[in-house]
């Protein structure tokens, strides 16, 4: 311990060196003798002391908490607002591509992109849902339920056809989007969403698929009404593209009488899909009922143009090794 103090003074002497030139005369200050558990040599004793130290820390923490709570109660209404807890979302690394709604250039880019005909109400969405070849139970049922969520969608059996052959036929039949659900060992695990006639194509990883049957407290079967769509939290330029892509699956002008909402909620780059029915119980209270299915998507890549895994150009591709450098960095 003495050694430590000495070292400390030596260090601070070095730090003071230049300061002395400025005329401040420092005093030699000794550190108070500090005690550290890790300096105890006996293992048993060290362990015991550590436990005691830990206990003491915990006691202090709880006492502090209690004290703060008391103070808050004493202050009543004048209490300062509670500090916001740190989460990795609100500590997010700044993304320079975050879309500024007043930005003319981005507005122009979005106004003339591949989804512009849909947003200008020139096309009506017509969607083809298919699967990877030879789908098994869950995937088949998932496709059926997805088609009950997305209006004007048609489920077709894949029949071993190549996507590159399907796409020209879809374009000829005026389909605007193609959804391909991929399955692995009877579990749906991937989703390719291709906007027709000329792209882009997004590839998502799909997880946590729960069918209607597996959801507790679900509502009755959804109706044929056009649902409302909620897109949450798509802030960056890439997020906007994905959001527009998902929005263009559903027709404009929802039928509010159906009281059905499809939600795509983005949180930490995972897109959560939920399908609800709501009811206004009173002026303040709203009740919701989940209708299902629910699933989670994570963007793997966006390709310019329709599906072309060999020669297509990627607009964005998730590269784990290069991009996942910080837990606080999000792309959508």
């Amino acid at each position: 311990m003495a050694g430590r103090g000495e070292q400390g003074t030596r260090l601070c002497g070095a730090a003071l060196g230049p300061a002395e030139d400025h005329g401040a005369a420092p005093e030699r200050v000794l550190f108070p003798p500090a005690f550290s558990v890790s300096e105890i040599k006996n293992k048993q004793r060290r362990h015991f002391m550590f436990l005691r130290w830990k206990q003491q820390q915990r006691k202090e923490k709880l006492a502090n908490k209690k004290k703060r709570k008391k103070e808050r109660e004493a202050l009543g209404d004048q209490a300062p607002p509670k500090p916001v807890p740190k989460t990795i979302e609100n500590q997010r690394v700044y993304d320079e591509t975050t879309v500024d709604p007043n930005d003319e250039e981005v507005a122009f880019d979005e106004a003339t992109d591949e989804f512009a005909p849909y947003f200008n109400r020139q096309t009506v969405p017509k969607i083809l849902i298919t699967t990877s070849d030879r789908p098994r139970g869950r995937t088949v049922r998932f496709c059926e339920q997805l088609s009950s969520v997305v209006p004007n969608s048609h489920v077709y059996y894949r029949r071993g056809l190549a996507l590159k052959k399907i796409i020209p036929q879809c374009i000829a039949r005026n389909f605007t989007d193609l959804i391909v659900v991929n399955e692995d060992r009877k579990i749906p695990n991937g989703l390719v969403l291709s906007h027709l006639p000329d792209g882009p194509t997004a590839h998502f990883k799909m997880s946590s698929v729960r069918l209607r049957k597996e959801i507790k407290r679900k509502g009755k079967e959804p109706t044929e009404h056009m649902p409302e769509v909620i897109l949450n939290n798509f802030t960056t330029r890439l997020g906007h593209s994905v959001g527009r892509m998902l929005a263009s699956l559903f027709p404009h002008d929802p039928q509010f009488i159906g009281r059905q909402v499809a939600t795509f909620h983005n949180q930490r780059d995972y897109i959560f899909f939920r399908f609800h029915r709501y009811i206004f119980k009173s002026e303040k209270k709203v009740g919701i009922q989940e209708l299902g299915p629910r699933f989670t998507l994570k963007l793997r890549s966006i390709q310019k143009g329709t599906f072309d895994s060999k020669f297509g150009e990627y607009e964005w591709i998730h590269k784990h090794r290069e991009m996942d450098t910080s837990r606080r960095k999000f792309h959508l």
Partner: peptide, 12 residues
């Protein structure tokens, strides 16, 4: 310089 001074004051 300001920084150094600060450190000098805080250090000991």
């Amino acid at each position: 310089a300001v920084k150094k001074q600060k450190r000098a004051r805080v250090g000991p």
